[in-house]
Design a protein around this nucleic acid. Sequence first.
DNA 1: AATTTTCATTTGTCAGACAATTAAACGTCT
DNA 2: AGACGTTTAATTGTCTGACAAATGAAAATT
Lengths: 246, 246
Amino acid sequence: MKIDPTTPADLSQQIAKAIRDAIISGALPVDERLPSEAELADQFSVSRPTVREALKRLAAQSLIRTQRGATGGAFVNRLRFEDAYGQQITTSTLLLSMNDVSFATACEARYALERACAPLSAARRSADHLATMRAEIHRQEQPGLTDEAFCASDVAFHRALVDAAGNPVLSYQLAGAVEAMQPLMNMITFTARSREMIIGLHGDIADAITEQDAANADKHLAALANYTQELARNVIARRNMRKGAE
Amino acid sequence: MKIDPTTPADLSQQIAKAIRDAIISGALPVDERLPSEAELADQFSVSRPTVREALKRLAAQSLIRTQRGATGGAFVNRLRFEDAYGQQITTSTLLLSMNDVSFATACEARYALERACAPLSAARRSADHLATMRAEIHRQEQPGLTDEAFCASDVAFHRALVDAAGNPVLSYQLAGAVEAMQPLMNMITFTARSREMIIGLHGDIADAITEQDAANADKHLAALANYTQELARNVIARRNMRKGAE
DNA sequence: AATTTTCATTTGTCAGACAATTAAACGTCT
DNA sequence: AGACGTTTAATTGTCTGACAAATGAAAATT
């Protein structure tokens, strides 16, 4: 592993890239121990703090883990789906909040992806996933539920629907789309009436998945997508009216 | 922003989390300048190297950018879709290579997501996207093309198809799925015969998108998914046979 | 008024030191 | 010999102080 000595700035970034490339290429396999910080400093001809900054960059991406002590050091970390979920959700949330993505765009993406999962979920759903979906619907029917709790349960319902597809790659991809929507969904305060409608559609979807009826599941998901978009349009229109009245 | 003084280890991680939470919550808006490293060190009662390690963690996630000089410092970075693509691709690639995800699973996820885009692409495709797709098909027909170049062109074709949906959130999500597959696809050395078949299906898909025929686009994408899976099964079967003969 | 110079501020890097942690090596006692 | 405590060496975590490099603002000069 070499770094370019002609561009002196950001040594820690260059070192991080060199090590990251070695991990991606497979030259450093999972659980392999990196040389100690002192050895890396020697190899790259930099100081230990600079090496440490590079290692912290990699740790922030869950590419390495560190351990203190005699046999400690930095080890190549097996990137697990659960670890990646968190990063995916953080990134997606910030992308939406920092780039003026309209609710309509985010909502469209979310339901398009979710509808892609539905046929697989219908085919492979386990009793566990069905039970989770039913439990969340039941929770959503509780009258005293706060808007935040309702939205959280909504997310849990949809994640169960996605997980039912039994494809971890899909679950990972969808985690970002579904979870990142929650702050936007929270902006839309659900009235009792709209909750009723949504719970009804959740029930229809759960029924279709139970009966392994992919076409019906898709139909009801599409209906839910349309209803959500309509709700959002109303909320936005009302907000604009209020603004105009001020 | 406070950090927990009772768990002394990993101060830089705690500081990074505190600042990250402030960014996600919106307390630190885009382009806001953070206090200087010396000031942060004072505020958190740690040394400057520790603060720097925390800032490097955030820089690794593209949450901040730094600038030297009198009016320099660390600024909250607007996370752009292009920046997020890279991280998404790195993470997806490592997830697939480190977790023994089967080709079938990855392929299923990829085509499920891509088929979710197809109806939107059919409705909204621009002349630009159509031209890109045709150009890549033309490139794929060149007889002297290496396997690597063919795969790269394949990726470009599918990215144009996804981008045609005109939804940046979808493009972001799909980037990981499509690009991360490339190393796996490269394992499958395409014969001249299979290239012909794939190019034909690409043409069918491009035709359907041109005619804004969502149903046909989906049909041909499904056919491409099936054919890819079949190719993979053959390659794997042949490899196992060779292993058995040794 | 325009240009050059100086200067203060900030990040980037380095050297050296000590604390905390950890497992292995070592010694001691039964 | 084996079990159990002790020492020790290696390694990361943190701190202090220093200097270099970049950069914009202020001051000096033409």
